[in-house]
């Protein structure tokens, strides 16, 4: 098939970007969208032009590296599909396709379609974990977990951290990402001791990173390649609210175990 691509090109964080139009022939319907970009890049290299920079790694829809807005939709038009798993058979012959990076203040553009998502890492660093020193864990079956809770925790834990939720949100909010982690850990008995401080710290960092507010549009859920539900956002809100009023912070200090 033949395609017309309009790809966002931006040399670096400090420079302005623009769309550049590329005509592409000989595209197989069995190609993934990233393979189309591969093909484009091979042609660009052949012409001694600079290839389009884009993040990608596993190409199986699990690592969360790839991400771009394709015709106005994060990861393209297919539900529950990352860009690497989006196949060209879903586009009509002669399609005109616009490709943009995630756009959010908290995700500055590195180059072309590559953005810096380290804000997500910093949110996890603030509290998205359960403290369990290697060697100190109790026997795995000592604490039974109701299957329903384990299943819902898994639903939330399926997040791949790609940032499509932020990209899709009219407010560039990261609530779905944060809610997924807070819910995953908060649904499990192992996550209870740190539950209140986890949600408070993660929300604090989320806001400091410059993500927008959740207005309950639900676009994040529609864009999420793992179809994580905004019900988890309700859960996060409740956790946050009860934590603000109930949590008694322990005295800030070094980790007791490490002195």
């Amino acid at each position: 098939m033949d395609l017309t691509l309009h790809v966002w090109r931006q040399a670096g964080a400090a420079t302005a970007g623009r769309f550049v139009r590329y005509e592409l022939g000989d595209v197989s319907p069995d190609m993934s969208f990233l393979e189309v970009l591969d093909l484009l890049n091979q042609q660009l290299i052949g012409r001694r032009e600079e290839p389009v920079a884009f993040d990608h790694d596993c190409r199986e829809g699990i690592c969360g590296a790839c991400g771009m807005v394709i015709n106005g939709r994060p990861h393209g038009p297919r539900a529950a599909t990352t860009a690497c798993q989006l196949h060209m058979r879903h586009f009509p012959e002669g399609a005109e396709i616009w490709v943009e990076p995630w756009r959010a203040r908290a995700f500055p553009v590195v180059k072309d379609l590559v953005v810096d998502r380290s804000a997500f890492d910093r949110i996890i660093q603030a509290g998205g974990f359960i403290t369990a020193r290697a060697g100190s864990a109790p026997e795995a079956n000592a604490i039974p977990v109701p299957k329903g809770d384990a299943d819902r925790a898994m639903d939330a834990a399926a997040c791949i951290g790609c940032g499509a939720c932020v990209a899709a949100c009219p407010n560039a909010s990261a609530m779905l990402f944060v809610a997924a982690k807070v819910s995953h850990l908060g649904l499990l008995p192992q996550g209870q001791p740190e539950r209140a401080q986890r949600v408070l710290r993660m929300v604090e960092v989320m806001e400091a990173e410059g993500f927008g507010a959740c207005s309950n549009h639900g676009e994040c859920m529609a864009a999420c390649p793992k179809e994580i539900s905004i019900d988890f956002i309700a859960r996060l809100n409740r956790d946050y609210l009860t934590s603000v009023f109930r949590h008694q912070p322990s005295e800030e200090g070094p980790d007791p175990a490490e002195g």
Binding site: F19, V69, N71, G72, R103, A168, E219, M221
Partner: peptide, 8 residues
């Protein structure tokens, strides 16, 4: 964005 489609 140049264009951001909505669905939900």
């Amino acid at each position: 964005y140049r264009y951001l489609e909505t669905s939900e």
